[in-house]
Amino acid sequence: MTLPLPIVGETNPKLRAAGAYLQHAATEAVTNFPNAFPPQRTEVPQPMDANDRKQIMGFFTDTTLCIGCKACEVACKQWNQLPADGNNFTGHSYDNTGHVSATTWRHVAFKEKMAEETQDGVSTSRWLMMSDVCKHCESAPCQHACPTGAIIYNQFGDVYVQNDICNGCGYCVVACPFGVIGRADTPHDDGHAHKCTLCMDRQEDGLTPACAKSCPTASIQFGPIDDLRAAARQREKDLHGRGNDKAYLYGCDSVGDYGPLNAFFVLEDHPNEYNLPVNPPQPFKGQTKRYLAGLAVGAALTAVGALLFGDTKRGGRRG
C-alpha cells in the first residue's frame, strides 16, 4: 500500500524527494501504526533475577593465553553476520581492525613491546595480545544513558541493545567509557547502535558464544560470572606463583565509582597498553547534584529578576 500524496506534478528534484520521503513516512506510519510504540508488540526478555547470581553469564579473557589467531573476531563476524569493514592498513603490527565498533564486536589487539622499551632491565621483546569486547558492565553507563530504553539487561544479566527500539540518538556512544558501542552510520546502514550481545541468541539455545567456542587456547572463557571470578582469582595466583608477577585482574572487582565488569581480563601491562582506561569514569554518579546546581543558578537569577521587576512596579506607583 502507498498513500496517494500529491507529489506527482513536482519537478524540482529536491522537493520531489522530500515528498517521496513524506509519502514513505506516512505510509509507514499508517501501516505500522499498531507497532508505533514497540513495547506493546515486542517481547522484552525478562531481566535477570538479581538474587540468582547463577544466572549471570560473562566472559573471562585471559590475555596471557592469547595467541592472536583472531578466530574469535572471525567467528563473531560470521555468527552475527556483521559486514566487513574494508581492507585497511593501519601499520599497527598485525592489527588492521583498530578498535571494536558497531560492526566489529571482538577485536584482537596486538602490541609489540620491543626489548629497549622494557624498564626493568630484562631485554626480552614480547607481544601483548588481547581479544577486546564489550565489557557488559554491571552498572553500564550506556544503559543508564539510553533514552528509549533500547538498552536493557537481558535474562543472562548482559547488556543488550534491542534493535527494534533504538532510534540512533548516539547518547550511548559518548556514555561508554571503553569506546565500545558505535552507531552504524554509513548510508546503507540502519543508523542504530550496535555492540556485542554476548551471543544472546546462542545462549537462549544453550550454546556457548561463538568467540568462546572458537577460541583454541581457552583464552576466552564463558560461564556463570561468580564461577569465572573465582577461576580468575585462582589463575592470577597461579601466574604469580610461576613468576609472572606482572599479571593482574582487570575489571574483576569494582574500582572507584565503577562497578565490576561481566567481561573482564587478566592483563600483563598497563591498561593503556591495551587501550583500556585505568579508572573508567562512572558519569551518572552524582548527576542529581549537577542538576541541582544548574536549577539553583537558574532559579536564583530568575528570582533576582522577579525582585527587581517588583521594585519597578512599586517605584512606578510611587512616582
Binding site: 589487539a109 556512544v173 559518548v174 558501542i181 591495551y274 587501550n275
Partner: peptide, 8 residues
C-alpha cells in the same frame, strides 16, 4: 595503544 583514540 599506538595512539588509537580509546573513545568513540
Amino acid at each position: 595503544y599506538y595512539d588509537v583514540p580509546m573513545l568513540k
